[in-house]
Write a protein that binds this DNA or RNA. Structure first.
Lengths: 250, 250
DNA sequence: TATTTAATGTCGGAC
DNA sequence: GTCCGACGTTAAATA
């Protein structure tokens, strides 16, 4: 059976369904009144309340409250889960080895216990990333300025990795840092680090922040540091089909 | 009824339960074979497969595959969801206003439709954050060095916000940047930005990166820039109970 | 609202 | 395994 669900399960039901869900590599989903304890990189406690608990076959463990996109507590993939009875309490326990982290959920009341043997062979196809901005500029250098010549992408230098390294028409080294969204102070500091590193070896080094826009603070710092800005939006078109003609839908 | 769940629901069941779940501020959870389309800051497509879909009463919308901690697609809190029939297809649609983003889930096959009127008045109590490191040092300045005098926390300066500003025993300005985990190149660049900004106004300015450890690259850059490192772990003790005496369990 | 930064960030890629 | 940086980052605090 691909899916099983039990409303107001008994303790035996829970133990049985948990075991079945785990052994069949299913996604286990529980609606429960529970308490949560976490200790690891940080430490937390969450008092009694109703939450949705999800345990994935890869060890991912999520506890969701009724608000926010983020789980209130979690364990990443690779963690090991078990269901124990302690002092007459039902406890879900997930352990991560490195770093050592423990998540414990005391199941006070379980309203629904379900599992889902999900079959999924699809991966997300996404366009509009920063890497695609760099690709776009590598193929169309004139988007930056006339005479710009790209040299290398993802170039590792002493203190970091430069998105795109090139030369301008006067032979100066040009460092490009791409941001797919509005660039902030952090982005300027990053670019500045690359520029300063390259200036140790080259005479004239320019730094250009390539992004759809700048925050006010970023603009000020960029100017003060003598760095430049080039407006560019991340591309969201389909990738070209290896030379095939574009269709009406492209 | 706090929880309702229907296995292999009919189209009418789905429409009915969706409406009931939405109107009662419940968390709606769906096990389904589906396709997903997203367009907004980026653009993505996900072919047919089995996923767990969660819709929260605050508008958060999560689509989980059977692996990873992160949802494969989502919509953040504040989004508006609807269930439409289009060309005989059942489509869950979530719209975010700003930035404009649209998420569409084509429900090809629904295995389980459930909702949960979760009651939850608890907030997470977490210790071990970066802010607590700063608090700790503010109260125990000798943890940094003999003679250190904290002046202000979260001090806004021209290009950013300094975690902790103080003076050393010689009267020099000291800027502390805290990291709750191993500090990297970014952390050094951040500290450097603050130090350089303060040096425009003050004669002698020291910068100290306070963290449990440093990456190798961070150590090199820190040294080259004449900045300092002070090892400190984020505190994970209970917060003091408003001056009450500590108990045996503290 | 825009800005800035933390996060138990997570994730992937390069070395 | 460590290091480095992106992310449709999300979320909180602040101006």
């Amino acid at each position: 059976m691909k899916v099983e669900a039990k409303l107001n399960p008994s303790r035996d039901d829970i133990v049985d369904l948990f075991s079945k869900g785990l052994s069949t590599e299913a996604i286990v989903t529980i609606f429960a009144h529970c308490r949560v304890f976490y200790d690891g990189r940080a430490k937390s406690e969450l008092g009694p309340g109703d939450r949705v608990i999800i345990i994935k076959p890869d060890g991912s463990f999520l506890i969701h409250q009724k608000e926010k996109r983020e789980p209130v507590n979690w364990q990443p993939p690779g963690s090991s889960v078990s269901l124990d009875v302690r002092e007459d309490k039902l406890i879900l326990r997930s352990v991560r080895r490195k770093p050592k982290e423990i998540l414990e959920v005391e199941l006070i009341d379980v309203y629904l216990f379900s599992y889902f043997q999900a079959e999924d062979y699809e991966a997300l196809a996404l366009v509009g990333s920063e890497a695609e901005m760099a690709d776009l500029v590598f193929k169309n250098p004139e988007l930056i300025e006339e005479g710009f010549k790209p040299i290398s992408k993802e170039k590792s230098i002493r203190h970091g990795i430069v998105d795109l390294l090139g030369k301008d028409k006067d032979g100066n080294i040009v460092i490009l840092e791409f941001k797919r969204r509005r660039a902030d102070l952090h982005a300027v500091s990053q670019l500045k680090r690359y520029v300063e590193t390259m200036r140790e070896e080259y005479e004239k080094v320019r730094g250009i922040l390539v992004a759809p826009s700048l925050t006010s603070g970023a603009r000020k710092l960029l100017k003060k540091e003598g760095l430049e800005f080039k407006k560019l939006n991340p591309p969201k078109q389909e990738k070209s089909r290896k030379g095939r003609q574009k269709t009406l839908f492209d």
